[in-house]
Simulated assay, not measured.
Amino acid sequence: MSADSRHSVSVAGVIVDDQGRALLIQRRDNGHWEVPGGVLERNEDIISGLRREVQEETGLEVTPIALTGVYKNMPRGIVALVFRCKVESDSLRESDESSGFRWVTADEVAELAHEAFAIRVQDALVTQSTVLIRAHDGTRLLG
């Protein structure tokens, strides 16, 4: 398999509070608002990687409730698995990767985040039994 045919797998947690809002982090590297998450390490399982990434970026311990979407960044070859999560221990704190936090509604996320990342929150906030599958270019949805 050539390096060009390989994909990277990332995980992200849409943490939902009792008011139906989702937690966004402001990324320290680029200032963008997104849900916490990141690339899985080769030797870790999906749920452990999700919990690790969320804890590193927010200080929170979470439990995934449901896989809500699979998203592919077509130019970069990154497949993201997005989970709706609930907080198990509340110790929200900034990190080397996050510089701020904001609880947002489905409408508010569209004003703060690029479409390709806002849709992940909007999909996770909708009660559904089907996992949504979408492609994007890093900013906008495709197709």
Rank of each mutant, 00 (worst) to 15 (best):
V82S: 15
I78A: 15
G77D: 10
D29Y: 07
G59F: 02
R84S: 09
Q19V: 05
R93N: 04
I47Y: 11
V104W: 04
E111N: 11
P75H: 08
E41Q: 12
R21W: 01
R51C: 09
R102D: 07
I25G: 02
V54L: 06
G37N: 03
A80H: 03
A106V: 12
W103R: 13
D18P: 00
E44C: 12
D4I: 07
I15Y: 02
R28D: 04
L67I: 09
E53L: 08
F83A: 08
R42N: 11
R28A: 11
R102S: 06
D107L: 05
G20H: 06
S2P: 05
D107F: 09
H7P: 06
R84V: 06
V104Y: 05
T58E: 03
Q55T: 11
R93S: 05
L67D: 08
G20P: 04
L67Y: 10
A66F: 10
L81M: 13
L40C: 14
E53R: 12
W103Q: 11
W33P: 14
S2E: 04
P64M: 05
V9L: 11
E94W: 01
Y71H: 14
L24A: 01
V109H: 02
W103P: 03
A12E: 04
K72Y: 07
D18T: 01
L40I: 11
L112H: 09
F83M: 10
S98H: 11
A110I: 04
S8A: 13
E34V: 10
D18Q: 06
Y71S: 10
E108W: 04
V87T: 14
E61A: 08
S98K: 08
V39W: 14
F83Q: 12
D18S: 13
R93F: 01
V104D: 02
D45N: 15
R27W: 00
F101K: 03
F83P: 09
E34D: 09
E94R: 15
E41N: 07
L23K: 00
G13F: 09
S95I: 08
G69I: 12
E34S: 03
S48A: 13
H32T: 07
A106L: 04
R42P: 13
Q55V: 02
M74G: 09
S10G: 09
R76I: 05
T105N: 13
L23D: 01
V62E: 01
G100N: 06
V54T: 12
L67C: 05
R102M: 02
D96V: 06
N43E: 13
R21S: 02
W33Y: 13
R27N: 13
G100K: 08
T63C: 00
A12N: 01
V82I: 03
S89W: 09
D90P: 00
D45W: 14
V35A: 12
G77N: 05
C85D: 03
S95A: 08
I25A: 00
T68V: 12
A106I: 02
N43A: 15
Q19Y: 08
D107I: 03
V35K: 01
D4P: 03
R102Y: 01
E41R: 07
G13C: 05
W103N: 11
V62A: 04
S10Y: 03
R51E: 06
E108C: 10
L60C: 03
Q19H: 14
H32D: 12
N43D: 15
Q26E: 15
Q26W: 01
